[in-house]
Each structure stands twice: as structure tokens, then as C-alpha cells.
Design a binder for these strands. Structure first.
Lengths: 209, 209
DNA sequence: CTCTATCTGTGAAATTTTTCACAGATAGTG
DNA sequence: CACTATCTGTGAAAAATTTCACAGATAGAG
């Protein structure tokens, strides 16, 4: 039916959505495309173009109404039905993610944790149910988990991804320092630190115009 | 002199560089653009186009020589001189990053850690020198730190960024759930989890073509 | 209601990025 | 050396994305 929303637009709108969340907390009722540019760095005309692709929204002399814009983005991307997550690998990084309050605040729930070290899991103090890694496919399906966060050592990243996919996962957020590119059309976000540092480093090295 | 390398190309080449590192560890001496496509998902012709922008590289019937290609990318982006990092915020997430072996393996050094909680820092067991946050500008300059990793609570993210910038930082990797967009032309990579989840969620919701 | 100041919405132009297709390069074989 | 199979390198075409510029919408003031 409607036209496809381009990927760069999706990325920018997610960023805008984050900003709107903050503005809402601060009880700021309206926001102009110029204000959004100031906070996010996205040019005002691009912001307007992006928003215009979502359908119509009333806007006045003071720009968009924060609420309305949030609702519009949220409906477009189905944010009202938050995805269910699981996390694989519960060493320091994995535990830090598991215990982070960020997720709860944003409305996401981690429905399960997995680790190959059963002793470690027995020691952990958390509300999230924990299982050994060989149960991934089964539990992922059983708990209808939508996506997995991978925080295992690099040599286990690929097989972990395969187990998750066997369970019917739709997306992966990968913290392991290995580029993952599974066969099926699973969406993968590789966000490991060394990769980001390299990218930052490359951007700094080439930025002098 | 030479033409500018487009940003999407930089991102892809960093991904390729990661892959090459792995191939090198596995003693794989050559790699074709088709093989790179298979591992990274980047189309082969795009890989070739990207590489061709870096200058000339000898290639044979079996594709590129892994070593040569790594060297070419590494020289283009000045990877031989690794940037010096610092990390601000040493709660669970910050500590996990500080203790990660990933960084050392990739050749990066964290030259300093900062936290506002002095007691916490006294309890920590690490080789990295730790300082209170108010010393950020001073120490960043003194230790010629190139970029900062921000892992502080959201309400402190902005002021932390400002302190880092005052110290003359060139880039920021931001783990705090706040979109940062400093005035100066500092390069910022926002990689906090809830943002990535939202993006993943939006991509999943819109992917059905 | 009219005037004014401030924003958005959007087709069209400009620019950037990706894709294509095939000439040219390389190495192995007899 | 000639033949072959396998890749790369790259100008040109195609597609996608961003930028622009200005008409139209809104709300407050007189």
C-alpha cells in the first residue's frame, strides 16, 4: 500500500523519538524542526521531510506538539507493543546489561538470560529466569522472544546466533567483537566497542576537509 | 589533494577491516570481494568500489591479499597510531568496559578512568589511573587523550561531554541514554542499548515489503 | 476580521551513493 | 608462450537521498 520508509529516515526518527521522550519528561509541549536540529544535529528540513513521510500531523505556529509527534512515530514503528528480549552471555558486560535500569525505563523486558556456566548463574541474584545455552532454541520459542542480545566471547558468537535463529528470533544486537551476517533475513546490529572506536578513529582521521 | 572518502564507505571499510583481522588470525592469506560479501553482507561490487577509492592495491586470481588490504585500510585511517581513550562513569557498565580484554586485543589503551564517587574508585582494582570527574579537563589535556567513553547516568551525560570537550577531546562514544550533539565539531557515536533496541524494533516493524 | 510572525509541507532540483557491465590483470597449466 | 578461469577496477547509468524554496497553515494581537 503506502510507500516504503527509507532506512536513513527510520534511524533519524528513532533519534528524534528519544529526544521527544526527554522533552516530555521536562513537560515541554511543543517543538519545532529547528529545535530538533539544535538537539540532534539533524537538519531542520530533513526533520520535516522525514516526519512528512509518516502521514499527517497537525502543527502550529510553535511547531509540532510533542505528544502527537511521539504518538505518530510510535504508531508507525509499533513501539506500543515492546519487543521481548533475551540476553546470552552473563559475564561482566552481560550482567551490566541485565541489571541496567535503562531497559525497564524504556519499557523493555528481558524475558530470559542464558549462559554456558551453570555455576555462575546459580550465584546470580536476579528476577530474570536463567537457563543454560543449549536450551536457547526451545526457550526462545516457548517465551516468544523477539530478539537476542549477544554478549558472549567472540569464538562463541556465531553458534549463539545460530541457536537464537533456530528459536525463531527476528533480530540480534551483537556486543561480541565479530561481524555477524546470518543467512536468513535476520536484522543484526553490531555494536561492539572496538568497532565503534575504529570507526570513530577513521572519522577523526579523515574529517579534515 | 585526493578526493574525500564518503562516510558510508568509511563505515563499510571498518567492518571489512574487522573481518580481515579475523581472517588473519585464521591464516587465510587471500580474500575475494565475493567472500567479503558472504561474511559481511556488503555487496561485492560495493566492496570493490570502496577499496578502489583508497588507492591501488595488487590483486590476483584469488582476490586481495589479506595483509595488503589490512595495511591499506589501516594506513588510510591511521590505525597504526591508536587513539588514547578515557572512560567516565565506573558503575557496572563502565567497569565492564574498563576490564574488557577486547580493547587490549585490538590495541587500544585506556589512559584514565573518571568517576564522581571517590569511594568507589578507591575500592577498584585496576592498572588504569583513576581520577575524580572534576579533574577531567585537566587530565584529558595532560595525558593527551583523544576520545572519551561516556557511561554516566543520563542526567550527567551532557555536563560530562562538556568537560571532555574542555579538555580538547576529538570524539565521544556515548553509552548514556541521551542524544548528545555538542556545538563544536566533535564526532559523537551514540550507542546506547535502548536506542538500538528501538531501531531494531522499527526495522522489524517496517521490513515487510 | 485582518495583519503579522512563525512554522510546516512538499514537489522539484541537486547531490550523493549504489549498481552495472565489461575491459584488463593475474596465475596456473601444458 | 598461449590459453583459460577467476578476479578486480572503474566510467557511466541508475537509484536513493538530501536540499531548497516558497506556498500554505496557524495563532496571537489589534
Amino acid at each position: 500500500m503506502g510507500k516504503q520508509i527509507p532506512e536513513p529516515t527510520i534511524e533519524r526518527l528513532c533519534k528524534v523519538y528519544s529526544l521527544l521522550g526527554r522533552l516530555k519528561d521536562e513537560d515541554i509541549a511543543t517543538v519545532s524542526s529547528a529545535a530538533i536540529e539544535k538537539e540532534t544535529g539533524i537538519p531542520a528540513h530533513t526533520v520535516r521531510k522525514d516526519i512528512s513521510q509518516l502521514g499527517s500531523i497537525k502543527s502550529g505556529k510553535e511547531g509540532y506538539r510533542t505528544d502527537d509527534l511521539m504518538k505518530l512515530i510510535s504508531m508507525t514503528f509499533s513501539f506500543e507493543i515492546p519487543l521481548r528480549a533475551c540476553i546470552v552471555g552473563l559475564d561482566m558486560m552481560g550482567s551490566a546489561i541485565l541489571n541496567s535500569t535503562q531497559l525497564k525505563i524504556a519499557g523493555y523486558e528481558i524475558a530470559a538470560g542464558f549462559d554456558s556456566n551453570i555455576n555462575r548463574m546459580e550465584m546470580m541474584n536476579t528476577d530474570v529466569p536463567l537457563y543454560p545455552t543449549y536450551e536457547i532454541p526451545e526457550k526462545v520459542r516457548e517465551l516468544s522472544i523477539d530478539f537476542g542480545i549477544i554478549a558472549v566471547p567472540p569464538e562463541k558468537a556465531k553458534e549463539t546466533a545460530e541457536k537464537l535463529i533456530k528459536g525463531g528470533i527476528k533480530g540480534i544486537i551483537n556486543y561480541s567483537p565479530v561481524i555477524l551476517n546470518p543467512e536468513n533475513n535476520i536484522i543484526v546490529r553490531n555494536i561492539y566497542l572496538t568497532e565503534e572506536i575504529r570507526l570513530l578513529s577513521a572519522l577523526i582521521a579523515t574529517e579534515d576537509k
